[in-house]
Design a binder for these strands. Structure first.
Lengths: 352, 352
DNA sequence: CGGTACATTTTGATCGTTCCAATCGACCAC
DNA sequence: GTGGTCGATTGGAACGATCAAAATGTACCG
């Protein structure tokens, strides 16, 4: 309450001010701040009182400079506005905060140019590490060039393109995309579906490739055919997905089910289906990927693959913190399983 | 490509390294870095070459220390996982990046304790300013005590409680909650609705109070009655809203429409209505607030109030940057209008 | 009393940058 | 040859913290 009693004009309070204020040296104050057992109980009390009185706030930047350490982690995301990544970011921040780190945020909006700029800008703040969910098509070489090899980087969710480089000792946290999509496809097949499309995403993105591979795997294992026009690309958002819905029915035989790239796409597709008078969950089966919050609440609720983005965020932070503790350890590639969540959007094919 | 040709072991490259590398003084290199016109073209070229060769990265922390400046802004949000705030954060980061600032993220998860902790932690990194969307019930006095008066703070979206304090010269960016809710209510009234409930939110939150006031205003202006059981509180998320749906129908006369606290609540309510066999947009009118992405894509699409969170984010950043330019200006309170977006979820009452 | 041990505190250098004042060479004017 | 101006560069002291080593003081012991 009396914190701001002294109208300390403008300048910030420093160690030196405190030291002067209670007649000790800066070093002693520093020791007090860091809870060293070396200081006398009495002086500690005096100093602490003075700290309170002057409203001192620690300057971590100065400390970090001297100690050649860092207490921040950069979090660079391709699309923060996507609830999946928003949840992820929340998890990251949670875990980093627990570890005494602060999150430097950067959002690239899926633009490689902005990714470069953002990485460059954040690096100037000397983060202890970086968590990066790369923009689509981001190249390993460029990232390596700007990040260098001083700062540990954890790759989340997507691979970088042209990853031939031997000296890119990065950790990875990836979803088991292939197995997830395979599970979804197998689930549809078990329901009796035979004409199953793969809908949405850009074929150039690694996660899309992996999910498509899982779909192909399941189809082939079941001896089912895959028509070329059952593969529809679209941007991974609702609006574009809804717009592309019609493409599923241009050609015959039309599919009666679709494994979608992710939930956003699946929800958009369902909207498009409604608009054509096709009722998802009854006339047409749909599955998603991610299990974002609205998946459970759509009509019909969406069958999808749960990846628990917040837990993934915490995990990403943990992995990076671990790397900081042991910079020499060999790079880890962590693949987290995803869980099939069956809801109303998946159904048997309409009786022919 | 040759950036990492030198296996520079471990230590980071500094000004001194560059200076030594091309036989000039640190000061000159510093001038080059900042594009000063004082340096000779030739030396500049030499230095720039050396910078590239050694893969130098600027240490902004050191510079900030010396210059007594800061190049970061703290962004503290009560719920980053909410798409509204995720969009907001994206807008903030966009605009801050443009201004050469970096975003320090903090997510409080609607906990006052965490808000304190996060603010404290971020302040140690000496942000030039703070954008805060406070947790519910966060007190002005506590915030003032931890933030102090050195760091400009911009309050977004919510007021702090107990705001009697005369010396809390904070800028504000608020939505026009009252007018928004009034517009929604008037819209329902114009459709012929007479029994209109106000659904969701915590009565203690300032934004909820304002929205409720707008609702009351419209009802009274139209001479319509307001039943006590037409005011249902719930947490501002889908799940709780769906669960509280039944409370609307415990008592008679039951409402035939509801003005909801926000979109999350409205979507949850619609789900709850479906589960009771009541079809929103036909049997019961619903309006939301925020116009989050899924509002347009729900079934039926949601009538709501657009607040353009991303644009608000940019605006918040701009306001704060302006404050930094002129710290002496009198505190601003900016209230942004919201726009009624009429969609399928609002309808006339069922023919009695 | 000298010596050693221990607890506590201080001095001065340092982190990587910027700022200020000073320097230096070259050129010109008188 | 002296002084002045100009362009280009530099040395060294900051910024606010930490660290290593040295310096206090105090107590104890033979």
């Amino acid at each position: 309450m009396a914190t701001d009693s002294t109208p300390h004009a403008n300048r910030k309070v420093t160690l030196t001010d405190i030291a002067a204020g209670c007649d000790v040296s800066r070093a002693t104050v520093s020791l007090v701040l860091r809870g060293s057992p070396l200081v006398n109980k009495l002086t500690r009390a005096r100093v602490e009182e003075e700290l309170r009185r002057q409203g001192y706030v620690y300057n971590r930047a100065a400390a970090n400079l001297r100690r050649r350490t860092s207490s921040s982690i950069a979090l660079v995301l391709n699309d923060l506005a996507n609830p999946f990544f928003a949840e992820f970011a929340t998890g990251v921040d949670e875990a980093l905060g627990g570890g005494g780190y602060v999150t430097l945020l950067g959002s690239t909006g899926e633009s490689i140019a902005r990714e470069q700029a953002v990485l460059g800008s954040l690096l100037e703040h000397d983060p202890a590490g970086i968590i990066l969910s790369p923009a689509e098509g981001s190249a390993a070489a460029r990232v390596l060039a700007t990040v260098g090899m001083h700062t540990p980087l954890l790759l989340f969710n997507r691979e970088l393109t042209g990853e031939a480089s031997p000296d890119a000792p990065w950790d990875r946290l990836m979803l088991d995309n292939q197995r997830g999509a395979r599970l979804a496809t197998e689930h549809l097949i078990a329901l009796g579906q035979k004409r199953i499309a793969f809908f949405g995403g850009h074929a150039s993105s690694s996660s899309c490739q992996q999910r498509h591979a899982g779909y192909v795997e399941a189809m082939q294992a079941a001896g089912l055919p895959i028509e070329p026009h059952w593969r529809i690309e679209c941007a991974p958002n609702r609006v574009d997905a809804a717009a592309q819905c019609g493409a599923l029915f241009f050609d015959t035989p039309a599919p009666t089910a679709a494994v979608c790239y992710n939930d956003a796409v699946a929800l958009g597709l369902m909207l498009g289906l409604y608009q054509r008078g096709v009722q998802p969950g009854r006339d047409f089966a749909v599955t998603g990927f991610d299990d974002i919050a609205e998946a459970a609440l759509s009509a019909p609720p969406l069958t999808t693959l749960a990846s628990k983005p917040r837990a993934r965020g915490r995990q990403a932070a943990e992995l990076l913190l671990q790397r900081l503790r042991d910079p020499q350890a060999t790079p880890q590639r962590t693949v987290v399983p995803v869980q099939l969540v069956v809801r109303g959007s998946s159904c048997p094919p309409p009786a022919a």
